[in-house]
Amino acid sequence: MTFLWTGLAASWNFYSGYCGRLSIGHAAFLGIGAYATALLYANYGISPWIGILVGGALSAIVALIIGGATLRLQGTFFVLSTIAFAKILETFAITAKGITGGSLGVLIPYTPGFLNMTWSGKLPYAIIAWAYMIIVIAACVKLEKSKLGYFLKAVGENKEAAENLGVNSSRTMLKAFLISAVFTSFGGSIMAMYVMYIEPSFVMSMGNSVQFILLAIAGGLGTAFGPLVGSFILVPVTNILRGSFPSISGLHGLLLGLILIVVLLYRTNGILPALREFVDNQRRRAKNDIKS
């Protein structure tokens, strides 16, 4: 599960982290991926492997429409529009009972096998989630070194100045938004197959979006490995907290929130950049020691 969350956080980071436009509604893409896979498999017996791709394609189309419509929105307005978009899809998933089964959700039949992407043990799922995480992080590493990555950062910092240098800001943002949405959708598909049951309030909820966004923010916005660091610290901490205070429900959430606030107050950039800075300073000090 940690791998999966990391992958999702990194998918989100791919767009919002590098260009600084926070899409709080990314759970919508997770939902699209999850539903596409689950419905195709449960109703038509189509292999989830194909379902993943269908979900990705659907997400790409939706991302183009939503991304295109929200291009001109800036700052808070963009954030709000993504929330509205996620809410619309969630509501749709609840009310369109004929298609999605409404709030009852979709139960995925349990027939283990490779083609069905269903196994009795947890290991294969872990491998898939791990591969997913690696692919998304690798994509982020590649992004950082590519033209798109440079353009995305530049647009995020100053759209006018970037356009002056020949950057087509609309195309840059759309491209990244689309890739980010497709990756998120893949994560949603994997999540659906692992949990074997999906419902709107689970896969499409704001809480879900916020969870992987927090991982990315805590780890380090706009850094390829930030989401990894964030997840591998925060997910276990969440579990420990939940285990330590089982009697009071919700207390772990409160404590987690506090930890996050402290991290963000102390280091606005997140944990990873802070670590890097620390290492750099140590090195510099060591160098100076040698000199003197």
Binding site: Y150, F151, K153, A154, E157, E160, A161, A162, V167
Partner: peptide, 14 residues
């Protein structure tokens, strides 16, 4: 209007 979070070289690379 520099891209503040990027290095000088990266700025020019854009």
């Amino acid at each position: 209007k520099p891209f503040r979070s990027m290095t000088v070289l990266q700025n020019a690379m854009v």
